[in-house]
Amino acid sequence: MQDCGFESFKIGITEISPHPKNAEIYGEDDIQELAAKIKNTGYIKPLYVNQDHVIISGHRRYKACLLLGIKQIPVVVKRFENEQEELEILLLENMYRDKTTEQKVNEAREWEIIEKEKAKQRQGTRTDIVDKCPPSNKNTVRDNCPQAEQGKTRDIVAKRVGLGSGKTLERAKPVVEKISKLRESGDTENAEFLSKALDKSISGAKKLVEDNIVEKVPKAYRDMFKEDNLSVSDVCTFTKGALEAKKRNEENQRQYEEQLKKEQQEREEKQRIEELQKTLPENAVVLDKFRKPAEPCIFGITDFNNLTEEQYGKCLKHAKKYEDRIYKTAILDVDLDCLQAWSCIYENQEEINDKLDTINMALQNLIAIQNYFKGVKKNGKPHIDEKS
């Protein structure tokens, strides 16, 4: 880099332009406060520009002057050997500014490119660089290994931009990639939310991205996060819980609607069969699909007088299963007020009749179970009770 004179001079603001990498790395800055300061003091620190009048340092001052309508702006011209040198100075000039984690990752990305290029220049035509890394062990020197060099570069640039270590940088990279995609798609709201989450917790923001729930965070959780009432981890956990609950509710609703549809079809089929039977002559032969079961069937058993050991065990197993329900049925309150309240929850007589049919079937099952157990001896073997 060479100085084209040490003194600054004023130039038309339309004759200079921002460096394309600046917006890519740092995004759009709030320059209202800086503009007010320039307006009150009248002082503008000279901008650094290259030989083509592209800004290397002073982008915020440039934007503030545009906002204020200032026509002439002081600059110092610097001559650079190449674009890499320009970018390096641009980054160094922004080293001590306040930055978001997103901006630090963007800086690290550019520093990695610069450092890799420097490494290539250092290697030059050396013939002692190994093509492949030797096995990793305590006695192996890996300084010339490309992977080791890459790892060192990440650690160097991560520390330089304030992210601590290369591992921290690697965790943050996919989050910044997601932020960039959101901004490119015009979704600035979610981009800003994720950027702020990244500032609070890199691991938490990474979890939001990995679980693909950035755009699904409810507004209530976003507001609580903005007010520092929820951590990023809490936002992630609560959002996943809310999504799972929504999924369960949708599944329950689907099953409920399917059950209603099935019951409606059964009622229509029953009505159709009844209407068909009314039109048949008394001596007509009814197809099996229209026949009603001649004997009640409970637990798949129709003959309770000749149970096999397997059927007996199955019946006993089901009886125990329904024991608690039988007890609850026995203690139901059936006073007049209770029955009137019960009937109020149904819209019409048809619904009440359906419920009565269900209750009647349950009672018949309970009676059949009762009759069966009346015939069970103390040793657990069934026998026929002539009275039943």
Rank of each mutant, 00 (worst) to 15 (best):
C4Q: 15
F6Q: 06
E15I: 00
E15V: 03
Y26T: 08
D29L: 11
D29E: 15
I31L: 00
L34P: 04
A35I: 04
A35L: 05
K37L: 13
I38F: 01
K39P: 05
G42Y: 06
G42C: 10
G42M: 09
Y43Q: 14
P46E: 04
I55N: 03
H59V: 07
R60C: 05
R61G: 12
R61P: 11
C65A: 11
L67D: 12
G69C: 10
Q72T: 04
V77W: 02
V77T: 06
L92N: 08
T101D: 07
Q103N: 12
K104S: 07
I113C: 01
I113M: 08
E115H: 03
K116Y: 10
E117P: 00
K120Q: 13
Q121Y: 05
R126T: 01
T127D: 13
D128E: 02
V130F: 10
K132P: 00
V141W: 09
V141F: 11
D143I: 11
N144C: 01
E149I: 14
K152M: 11
T153L: 08
I156V: 06
R160T: 10
G162Y: 06
G162T: 05
L163T: 03
K173D: 10
E177R: 11
I179Y: 02
E189W: 10
L194R: 00
A197N: 01
A205N: 03
V209R: 07
E210I: 11
N212V: 09
V214G: 09
P218C: 01
A220S: 09
Y221M: 09
R222G: 03
D223F: 05
F225C: 06
F225Q: 08
E227A: 15
N229Y: 10
V235C: 07
A242I: 02
E251A: 14
N252H: 10
N252G: 00
Q253N: 14
Q253H: 13
R254F: 12
E258Q: 14
Q259M: 15
E263Q: 12
R267Y: 02
K270I: 03
K270M: 07
Q271D: 10
R272K: 15
E274L: 14
E274C: 07
E275K: 14
T279W: 00
P281Q: 01
A294L: 14
E295G: 01
E295S: 13
I298M: 11
F299V: 12
D303S: 08
F304M: 04
N305V: 03
L307Q: 02
Y312K: 15
A319I: 07
Y322A: 11
I326W: 08
T329R: 13
T329N: 15
I331D: 07
L332I: 05
Q340H: 08
W342G: 06
C344E: 15
C344M: 13
E350F: 01
I352N: 00
T358R: 06
Q364R: 14
L366I: 11
A368L: 15
N379R: 08
N379Q: 08
K381A: 15
P382T: 02
D385W: 08
K387M: 06
